[in-house]
Design a protein around this nucleic acid. Structure first.
Lengths: 219, 219
DNA sequence: GCCTAAATCTACCTATGGTAATTTAATGTG
DNA sequence: CACATTAAATTACCATAGGTAGATTTAGGC
């Protein structure tokens, strides 16, 4: 439906030779493993921004496009794979920070801060992953972060206050809400870094922990 | 950088006539005003989904592509313009609902419900507007909803609890957080409508109003 | 009545995602 | 050791879609 490039064309006289060039085979060890391709993609994205072309990625990896396609699939699959990678990295790094405290509010604060830090440190990759897809595909993939990272945190919160029946639906909605607020504030902050990291962290933490209610007006 | 379509090619013998066809001029009233173009774009999007081509939009509007470009600009400008329109529509409709109550929590609840309702009612347009852009451009436009709709609501909340110094930075961060959580929950809900509208509304409202804290564990 | 100006359409370009045809190196077999 | 077979990978290609320039015709002014 998208690019059904079918070539059923009469043969022509091509001056340049086609086919495999002289070089070492691939049997002696996998030359371009999936991980190497993804790492190259991350490098290309960091360099060229979220609108990198697949040609640029393939060139960075030192392979040709069909190899890239055999290794990771089409562009959507690439976005998906990189989203998984980034999510895992974020989860790991943030989890380490979160584990350093016992206070739930402080856990949330560390989660927020870690999210902002990593997004800023890998700005282009973050944009590529969150804005890379299009249309319905995007609907599938943009939620990866929420699917993975936040769910376990919110589950933890839900378990913490185990007085209630621990409705799993609540945890799901909350985890999407949590990630969504983080994501939008991150986008805004990447665009206009007018506030300090710590300030933004405090404001989001306040919103998410205490809610909009706060206390009644003092009058 | 993108499509610098420069034609510096030797003239060919084209059988078909080029140029302006017989018809009425545009002096007697603007034929394809900006609003008409945008309305046609919305129709085409509703029909074809968020991946509509500009050709389809121009055809729906009954004009040719250059006219579309003169009227609204390139694709990013189109996304931007439609985002503005949708935002205004949402703001108006939601504001009407919000005004029917005095209780701040109920105002928030109505805001949430209205957001979900409109997004679901105009699913394709919502996806086009929120996922339409790419790369850095997206960073500019995806925040329109937050820029407009939520800010005034959060300002209201901030004014309501006027005890604090009403830091405008807090209101900004909160409004992005508010819209972000709405947006992500909406995407999830559009993908998997497993819960009733009212249930989702209650869960988000609870998260945003009360926060993750709730009460201490009962033990 | 002719010329200028404005408006617009067709045709085209360019860029990019994605794939098929083709060719060579490696490997197994008589 | 010569030869067929297979696997891999490169080049060239296609299709689609955004964006623009040149051609052309109508309307209005001198």
């Amino acid at each position: 439906m998208k690019g059904s490039g079918g070539a059923r064309r009469a043969p022509r006289s091509t001056p340049r030779p086609r086919g495999r060039p002289p070089g070492r085979s691939s049997r002696d060890g996998v030359i371009a493993g999936r991980d190497a391709l993804l790492a190259a993609a991350e490098r290309a994205i960091a360099r060229d921004g979220p609108r990198v072309t697949l040609d640029a990625i393939a060139a960075e990896a030192g392979v040709t496009k069909p190899i890239l396609y055999r290794g990771v699939g089409d562009r959507d699959a690439l976005v998906f794979a990189l989203a998984e990678r980034l999510t895992r990295r974020m989860t790991d790094q943030v989890a380490e920070q979160v584990a350093r405290t016992e206070d739930p509010e402080d856990m949330l604060r560390r989660l927020v801060r870690g999210y902002l830090e990593l997004a800023a440190a890998q700005r282009n990759l973050y944009l590529f992953v969150t804005a890379g897809g299009v249309g319905d595909k995007r609907l599938q993939q943009s939620l990866l972060l929420a699917d993975g990272a936040a769910q376990q945190f919110v589950d933890g919160i839900a378990a913490f206050r185990s007085a209630r029946g621990a409705d799993p639906a609540v945890a799901t909605v909350w985890s999407y809400g949590l990630v969504g607020s983080l994501h939008y504030v991150t986008l805004w902050w990447l665009r206009e870094p007018s506030l300090e990291l710590e300030t933004v962290t405090e404001h989001i933490t306040s919103l998410l922990w205490t809610g909009l209610r706060l206390e009644e007006p003092v009058d």
